[in-house]
């Protein structure tokens, strides 16, 4: 028997001493602090500039906080800023974007989720071949397909309409969303699907009663992905709609980069912030799910 109590402890014992301000920590947190400030700076500049009056902008530097806070630039950006010919601010573009985004998001998610479910659980001959084409299609530069789609939309009389743009967003959202849903449904236990078949549920029965209720997170991810993606789109908006139905990004660009008149930097920044507000809100609210959404593109099937 060893007598534990009487043995003398000498040398290092107990918790290892740690310095809170070790060189490693100073370096680590110092670097991260500088990086964080750098990334946050543009947002800060946008906000402070949009709250200053023009005289203050001309005098001061862009990083200094506003001496006199004014919301006039915001009002002007929303309702009066000029885009070449018309002067009704961003509001038209905003509502156009809303009218484009909502149906596009719904339609693309419905189609892609049902399709992903068919690919995951009801494989038929040739399904994988089409799916492979679809995934490779995601890598084709949009420019290659821009004009053929113009012709197709013109043929069915939808060129220049919001419906046409909704279809375009649905088409180009399909590869990534289908992959997202297919991978998710594949990851669900196959035995659940089998059990439901033994229980006599069919294609739609299993989709609505079993799969959809189990997949709310992935539907949220898809929604975040699509809302930000479609809201931020510029190219399709400018190609497939007419000026009166331009989405917000296009109006914003036209306001800021219009060559007429005096440059009102505060109004420009207010307009920029307003345009970024929707995706930013979604980003800050959704947090981890947003990360999951963008990572979904990188996780291979």
């Amino acid at each position: 028997m060893v007598d534990i109590t009487s043995s003398q402890l000498s040398g290092p014992q107990g918790p290892k001493p740690r310095k809170a301000l070790s060189r490693r920590n100073i370096l680590l947190y110092g670097t991260l602090f500088v990086v964080t400030v750098y990334y946050a700076l543009p947002l800060y500049v946008m906000i402070v500039t949009s709250l200053k009056g023009m005289p203050e902008i001309r005098l001061g530097n862009i990083f200094s906080p506003p001496v006199e806070v004014t919301f006039e630039p915001w009002v002007k950006a929303w309702a009066q800023a000029c885009t070449g010919l018309t002067c009704d601010g961003l509001s038209t573009g905003f509502w156009n974007s809303v009218r484009i985004t909502i149906p596009s998001v719904i339609l693309s998610i419905v189609i892609a989720s049902v399709n992903g479910y068919a690919l995951a659980n009801w494989k038929f001959k040739g399904a994988d071949a089409f799916f492979t084409i679809l995934i490779f299609g995601a890598f084709i530069p949009y420019q290659v397909m821009l004009y053929p789609i113009v012709i197709m939309l013109r043929e069915i009389g939808l060129y220049g309409s919001l419906t046409g743009l909704v279809i375009v967003h649905t088409i180009f959202g399909m590869p990534i969303l289908t992959l997202l849903f297919r991978n998710y449904f594949t990851s669900l236990p196959e035995e659940l699907f089998k059990a439901a078949r033994v229980d006599g549920a069919g294609f739609w029965g299993i989709y609505f009663r079993i799969m959809v209720p189990m997949s709310l997170p992935i539907f949220t991810v898809a929604m975040i992905l699509q809302v930000t993606g479609i809201w931020n789109d510029f190219l399709f908006g400018v190609v497939y709609t007419r000026p009166e139905s331009y989405p917000m990004t296009v109006s914003l660009n036209n306001i800021v980069n219009s060559t007429q008149g005096v440059k009102e930097y505060n109004v420009n920044m207010a307009a920029t912030i307003i345009t970024g507000l929707v995706p930013l809100t979604i980003y800050f609210v959704s947090g981890k799910l947003f990360v999951r959404g963008i990572a979904a593109g990188a996780v291979k099937g």
Binding site: P42, N232, T275, G276, Y283, F284, F290, V291
Partner: peptide, 10 residues
């Protein structure tokens, strides 16, 4: 990551 949520235009 937040800049990634913003559009290229912004």
């Amino acid at each position: 990551l937040y800049p990634y949520a913003l559009s290229f235009v912004v």
